[in-house]
Design a protein around this nucleic acid. Structure first.
Length: 279
DNA sequence: CGCTTTTGACCAGCGC
DNA sequence: GCGCTGGTCAAAAGCG
């Protein structure tokens, strides 16, 4: 008696598992589609921005203000086709104030590193000098402050801190704009910095940041760069299955943080369960 | 020796 | 006004 009931239960569970797997696959496909649409839209935007450059005044105004303006950066700009959302929560978890004036060109990048790597180094092709480190209240990990040391007159600053959610992700916040070419490009590719020519990123995203501060996610730990042509604002569509999987994962994590999406998902799942029960 | 990093002190903005 | 906090400074230490 018990055995039969158990077997029935198991088969039901297996069936349920299969159904969930199928649904998961479907959702993954949807995410991939969304991602492709997003990329094409972004490319269109980049082209549009290239044709219609927006002049934006860079003024290193009051520190707190520029920081808070960063809170508006809820959209994600990706390079190398990777996206990251979990790491942007550090500040976006605070309710973004509406109609906040944008005062400085600020953008973020999220870099996945080895979790054991304790150094707060984000290799982006520029030379940085560390001038401070602080432990902030909202994050137990220390935040490092860097200035661009390649040109003494370069006003660009960078803050690097580990993500609260994922210790393997470094969140680098850039402020300002480089007034000099990228050192790694001048030195004609030292190898390690290749494929991460970020210099074009600020140019392509700053215009966007005039409305909202974009987040840029890079995964420098994956050696599959191969895109020496990242100079272009358009990412080369040469994503390997690994990259695509990572991308999908990140999209998924992004969506799961969206209350609307989770609500819709919950409704869909509960609807299916209810459907099964009633049948 | 010169450059970079570390780290405690200091300053300024913000909220109460 | 006061305390908290983030950002910066600058002296000391470390490193090549």
């Amino acid at each position: 008696m018990k055995l039969g009931a158990k077997q029935e239960n198991t088969s039901a569970l297996v069936e349920e598992l299969n159904r969930v797997s199928a649904e998961n696959k479907k959702l993954t496909e949807m995410l991939t589609m969304m991602c492709e649409n997003y990329n094409s839209l972004r490319n269109q935007l980049a082209e549009y921005m290239n044709k219609n450059p927006v002049e934006k005044e860079l003024s290193p105004s009051k520190k707190r203000k520029s920081e808070s303006s960063n809170n508006n950066s809820n959209n994600i700009i990706t390079t190398n086709g990777n996206s990251e959302s979990s790491s942007t929560d550090e500040e976006s978890c605070k309710k973004p104030r509406e109609e906040e004036p944008i005062k400085a060109k600020v953008w973020k990048t999220c870099v996945r590193t080895e979790a054991t790597d304790t150094s707060l180094i984000v290799k982006d092709g520029y030379q940085w000098r560390k001038y401070g480190q602080k432990v902030t209240r909202d994050n137990p990990s220390p935040r490092a402050y860097f200035k661009c040391s390649f040109a003494p007159s370069c006003p660009v600053k960078k803050k690097v801190q580990r993500s609260v959610d994922d210790q393997s992700i470094l969140v680098a916040t850039y402020e300002g704009e480089h007034n000099h070419p990228q050192p790694s490009q001048m030195e004609a590719t030292s190898g390690q910095n290749r494929g991460m020519a970020l210099s074009s990123v600020p140019c392509s995203t700053n215009s966007i940041s005039s409305s909202v501060g974009p987040n840029i996610t890079l995964d420098f730990t994956k050696p599959k760069s191969g895109n020496d042509n990242t100079k272009s604002a358009k990412p080369a569509r040469t994503e390997s299955p690994d990259v695509r999987k990572f991308l999908v994962d990140q999209m998924a994590s992004s969506l799961t943080k969206d209350p609307n999406f989770t609500a819709a998902l919950a409704a869909a799942i509960s609807g299916r369960i209810y459907q099964q029960k009633s049948s």
